[in-house]
């Protein structure tokens, strides 16, 4: 079990061992005594019971000893936890954005990735941002988890100690595709990380010449494809394929009306999705992206949706 994949594993696992160890001894002990009594004092062997009302000394003993034991348990829990809230000053900061149902990791240079890429043996601090409902970022191998709560700036940190690719789960229930809000944390050597980071910065400076590819990258980075397909498949939201220029029945307030999918409609649908809800789709699922997506990126998205044909 103990992989030492992060700096916290050892202390957290120690707390498990201490608590489960003490508990097992008590569990087995009490159960054995109970079964022994039932056999030894069976009514066939012991036809008359000896009446004992109680014993204050014993009551005291089995109050005090467990109190000491649980305080020991508390101590180990606390020791493993304490460092989790104290981030080293030189930690690399990454913004971890959770939304239904995908993660985006945003680096200092503006680089966005749907995987968390971190260097080996460097402290990394994740600033947790939710765009819609509660999520929780959980990396079991690192023994860390923290809720990603909208309107709150939670954080977590860790230092990866082993190269590899580790599962990241969303641990706080967040709706229909909660189980699919998973990705990976890739731990790579520092040099590799540095060049990945620099290349990413370059790529941002010279974005792809192909506007379709740029558009696709933008919707991917913003997590749209968790709910919208690009090939006509119906996910939680309507597919982007072939919608541009078509007629749409939407529900505005309580009224149904028909609109044409044009640029203005698309942009408003992204910024304020609840204004016009596409008929037969669920209201309130898509987060509003007003203020989250730059005008430039918005143009790329619109261009991309247009490019998927009419």
């Amino acid at each position: 079990m103990n992989t030492n994949a992060s700096n916290f594993v050892e202390q957290v696992d120690l707390a498990f061992y201490v608590i489960i160890g003490i508990s097992l001894i008590l569990l087995i002990g009490v159960t054995a005594v109970m079964i022994y009594f039932v056999v030894r004092y069976n009514k066939k062997k012991n036809p008359t019971a000896t009446q004992i009302e109680g014993n204050n000394k014993l009551e005291l003993i089995w109050t005090i000893i467990p109190t000491i034991l649980v305080l020991i348990m508390f101590y180990y829990g606390w020791v493993g936890y304490e460092p989790m809230r104290n981030v080293p000053d030189d930690a690399i900061e990454v913004k971890a954005i959770g939304r239904m149902w995908s993660w985006t990791f945003e680096y200092d240079n503006g680089l966005k990735s749907d995987k968390l890429i971190v260097p080996l043996n460097k402290a990394v601090k994740l600033n947790l941002v939710s765009m819609d409902v509660n999520h929780a970022l959980y990396i079991p191998a690192f023994r860390i988890k923290e809720d990603v709560v909208p309107g709150r700036n939670n954080f977590m940190w860790f230092e990866a100690q082993k190269l590899g690719s580790y599962d990241i789960f969303c641990a706080e229930y967040c709706g229909q595709r909660h189980a699919y809000m998973i990705t990976k944390c890739d731990v790579i050597p520092v040099e590799e990380y540095n060049s990945w980071y620099a290349e990413g910065a370059q790529a941002l400076a010279n974005p792809s010449d192909d506007p379709v590819e740029a558009g696709y990258n933008t919707i991917k980075a913003n997590g749209c494809i968790a709910c919208h397909s690009t090939d006509g498949t119906k996910l939680v939201g309507p597919s982007f394929k072939g919608i541009f220029g078509t007629q749409r029945v939407v529900v505005t307030g309580d009224e149904e009306r028909t609109v044409t999918v044009d640029e203005a409609y698309i942009i408003n649908s992204i910024k304020h999705p609840n204004d016009d809800v596409v008929k037969d789709y669920m209201k309130g699922l898509m987060p509003g992206y007003d203020g989250q997506i730059s005008d430039e990126d918005m143009d790329k998205i619109v261009f991309y949706i247009k490019s998927l044909g009419e």
């Binding site: 957290v12 707390a15 008590l26 569990l27 829990g77 606390w78 929780a136 079991p140 988890k145 641990a171």
Partner: peptide
């Protein structure tokens, strides 16, 4: 017997660091 198992594992989730791992 079962309540003891439930109770002891309750201590596991009552401990801060262990809970961070197994919460939810």
């Amino acid at each position: 017997f079962l309540f003891m198992i439930g109770g002891f594992t309750g201590l596991v989730v009552g401990a801060l660091s262990a809970d961070v791992h197994v919460h939810d």
